[in-house]
Design a protein around this nucleic acid. Structure first.
Lengths: 132, 132
DNA sequence: TATCTAGTTTACGTTTACGTAAACGTCAAC
DNA sequence: GTTGACGTTTACGTAAACGTAAACTAGATA
């Protein structure tokens, strides 16, 4: 089972292209809780996966607080009926928000694309260039 | 031509659901430059459109500096050959970045979706619930 | 004429997400 | 036995994106 690897803080920092400070900060913010060997942090494969989630959340544009909430959803997943209903609802709202965000991204891409085309046509039809 | 409307700072603040302070801040940051009637700001329909762009940029997760850059692309569009080539390249990089971000969003949605399904199935199959 | 109402500038405060020392522990290597 | 390499905590610094309070201006209204 090579699934039970462990990582030093430098390992993960290098892999995810962040500083050790950043990883400690995420720990302060309650996003990860690596084990300790003495006082040194030891990250498990689960921590590794969790961190991958965090980094993707960052790329999507979420704050650490929002990412923390989303990770909490998973932890609450095995709770009792009512709690589960609430979790499900929050989960769906997040999905809706993400879909809205994707819509904004698509619109932005479309406009930039169109602008690119304008620029290209300008290049191929010098009549449209101003000569100064 | 109802396309030549004008807006007060309060108008736009209300419409885009931000404070007047925010609009003034965007001005400080060089994102908009409304006309003045005396010392009061008067926003044109062009300013209105520009602001819509800004807000969408924010929703996508861009910083004000990035949004400023993107808006600059449009202004540089009518420049000379070499400058235009650079603009085009930067424009395409932005598009690529946006597509990557959309990929991250899709992945996140997929995982949340799957998690939602798990929660729903748990609800429909009480055997999987823990009772203690 | 006095008082709103809406806008203005100036400037310090706040939150988020880390950066950046400073001072120290630990273990392997020389 | 001390020098590195790598880790730790503590704590102040910083950039971005506004919030917020203070003090002021200018036009509309009672």
């Amino acid at each position: 089972m090579s699934a039970s690897k462990s990582y030093s803080i430098a390992d993960l920092a290098a892999e995810f292209r962040v500083t050790a400070r950043t990883l400690r900060h995420y720990e302060d913010a309650g996003l990860i809780s690596p084990a300790r060997a003495g006082q040194n942090r030891v990250y498990s494969t689960a921590d590794h996966a969790r961190l991958a989630w965090i980094m993707r959340g960052k790329r999507v544009g979420f704050s650490l607080a929002e990412i923390s909430e989303m990770l909490d959803l998973y932890n609450l997943g095995d709770d009792r009926e009512e709690q589960r209903r609430v979790t499900l609802e929050r989960c769906r709202k997040r999905i809706a928000a993400l879909e809205a965000q994707r819509g904004d991204i698509d619109l932005t891409i479309a406009e930039l694309d169109e602008f690119c085309n304008t620029l290209e046509n300008l290049g191929e039809d010098p009549r449209l260039q101003h000569t100064g």
